[in-house]
């Protein structure tokens, strides 16, 4: 396998970093909780990509393996997240983060 036409590792890593911070800023900026959940997923997948990139770079299967765990956990997480969202929607009738300001100070 010739390796010369492959992408340089730092490119992939910086790409992952970009996606990660897009996801993070999504969580900060967006009002709608559904979008926030999606952004969290985005962050997790960015990490997956960086894992795979490192695994390839280090020629070690550990990274690849980690991705599976992360995907499983991300699934569980979003399940719980959506469950909570529905419960909240049933009482607060909204998914907007500005509405849920009951607990403060």
């Amino acid at each position: 396998m010739n390796t010369e036409n492959l992408v340089a590792p730092w490119v992939v890593q910086s790409f992952c970093a970009m996606i990660f911070f897009i996801g993070l800023s999504g969580v900060l900026v967006r009002r709608n909780i559904l979008v926030i959940l999606m952004c969290v997923e985005l962050m997790l997948n960015a990490v997956n990509l960086s894992f795979v990139a490192y695994a390839h770079q280090l020629q070690d299967m550990g990274g690849q393996m980690a991705v599976f765990f992360i995907i499983v956990v991300a699934a569980a997480e979003s399940a719980v997240g959506l469950g909570l969202l529905i419960a909240m929607f049933r009482t607060l009738k909204t998914v907007d983060t500005d509405e849920i300001r009951l607990l403060k100070e």
Partner: peptide, 17 residues
């Protein structure tokens, strides 16, 4: 310091960042 606790998730996340 207490008033900084506005209750909105965004503010908390910004603080973390």
């Amino acid at each position: 310091a207490r008033t900084a606790q506005t209750g909105s998730i965004q503010v908390y996340a910004v603080m973390i960042l």
